[in-house]
Simulated scan of single mutants.
Amino acid sequence: MTAHHIGTREDWLRARLDLLAAEKALTRQSDAVALQRQALPWVKVDKDYRFITEAGEVGLADLFAGRSQLLVYHFMFGPDFAAGCPSCSLIADGFNGIHVHLANHDVTLAAVSLASLDKLVAFKRRMGWSFPWASSATGDFNFDFSASFTEEQERQGKVDYNFQREPQVDWSSNGIVSGLAVQSGTTPSGYMRERPGMSAFIREDGAIYHTYSSYARGMDAIWSMYPWLDRAPKGRNEPTGPWWRLRDAYEVPAAGKAQSCCA
C-alpha cells in the first residue's frame, strides 16, 4: 500500500491548478532572470587564445564558425584523464541534436577541454557525438575562465570557483568525488582540478566580448535529464549522490529481463 496521498480526480485538479499558478510564477521569474543575464556588461577579450581542433590550430574567433555568438561548455577532461567526466558526458549527451538548431540561429555550441585533442576525438567517437570539441592544452583559456586549476593553486588553497574562494578539501576522503574520479580514470585531486561550467561570447565590430559564465548548480538548466526527472513521480530521487554512468557503462539487463514498451 502506497504511503503517498491518494485523492479523487477532483482533488488532483484543484492541487494541479495551485501548482499551475506556481509554475507560471516561476516561468515569469525565469524570464526576468534571463533579461538580467543578457543585460550584464560585456568584457572585451584581448588575449590571443589558441585551441587545437580537428581542423588544426585556431583562435577563439575561429570557434564561432562564422556566427556572431559562441557558447562554450567547459567539459571536465584533464590531461591525465582516461575518459571524460561522467557528469559532463551526461550533459553533453544532450548537445547532439540541439547544436544543429543553435547553429541555424546564429549560435555555435562547442566544448573545450584541457586534454589533448587525440583523447577528445577518441572519446567523442566512443560516445557518438558530433558537436565541435577543442583542446585548450596549449593556452590559458581554461584557467582564465575558472574551469581548470593548477596543483599549486590546489596546494595553496587558491581555488576560486563559482565566483568565490573555496576552502581546502581532502578530496580523497570524498566518496562521491572518488567514484567520479575512478570513472574518469584519474585521482580525486586530479579530477577536482577540472570543473564544469559554460561561458558565452559575442563578436561585434571585429571584437570579441565575454558576456556570461555559469558554474556548479548554475548549470542545472542544461542537464537535459533533470527537467524530466523533476516531472517524474519520485523526482530526482538521488539522496546518495550521483547515480549516473557513462552512457555505455550501465549494466546490460540479463537476458529475458529487458523492459519493453510493447511487452
Rank of each mutant, 00 (worst) to 15 (best):
T8G: 07
E10F: 04
W12C: 00
L13E: 08
R14L: 07
R16F: 02
L17N: 07
L20Y: 04
A21F: 03
A22S: 08
E23C: 05
L26W: 03
T27V: 09
Q29G: 04
D31M: 09
A32F: 02
V33D: 11
L35D: 09
Q38E: 11
L40V: 04
W42A: 14
V43K: 10
K44G: 03
K44L: 06
R50Q: 13
R50P: 03
A55N: 15
G56S: 04
G56H: 05
L63A: 03
L63H: 01
R67A: 12
Q69R: 14
L71D: 12
H74C: 08
P79H: 09
F81P: 01
A83H: 13
P86W: 01
S87G: 08
C88V: 03
S89L: 06
S89T: 15
I91H: 11
N96C: 10
G97P: 04
G97F: 11
H101W: 12
V107N: 08
A111S: 14
V112A: 13
S113Y: 06
L114M: 13
L114K: 11
D118H: 14
D118W: 12
L120C: 06
V121I: 14
A122F: 10
A122N: 12
R125W: 08
R126G: 04
R126K: 14
M127G: 05
G128E: 08
W129S: 06
S130D: 13
A134Q: 06
A134P: 04
S135N: 12
T138S: 14
T138D: 13
G139M: 07
D140L: 10
D144F: 01
Q153D: 13
K158A: 13
D160I: 13
N162L: 10
Q164R: 13
E166V: 06
V169K: 10
W171T: 12
S172N: 14
S172I: 10
N174I: 09
N174T: 02
N174F: 01
V177S: 02
V177F: 03
V182M: 06
T186H: 07
S189V: 10
S189L: 07
G190H: 04
Y191D: 00
E194Y: 00
A200V: 12
A200P: 02
I202Q: 12
I202S: 10
E204N: 08
A207V: 06
I208R: 00
Y209V: 02
Y209L: 01
Y209W: 06
H210F: 12
S213M: 07
M219E: 02
D220M: 09
A221P: 00
A221H: 07
I222N: 05
L229T: 12
D230M: 15
A232V: 05
K234R: 14
G235Q: 03
E238F: 09
T240I: 11
G241H: 03
G241Q: 05
P242K: 06
P242D: 11
W243M: 11
W243C: 09
L246D: 00
R247K: 15
R247W: 10
A249Y: 01
A249V: 01
A249E: 15
Y250G: 04
V252I: 15
P253N: 11
A254W: 07
G256D: 00
Q259M: 11
S260P: 04
C262F: 11
A263K: 08
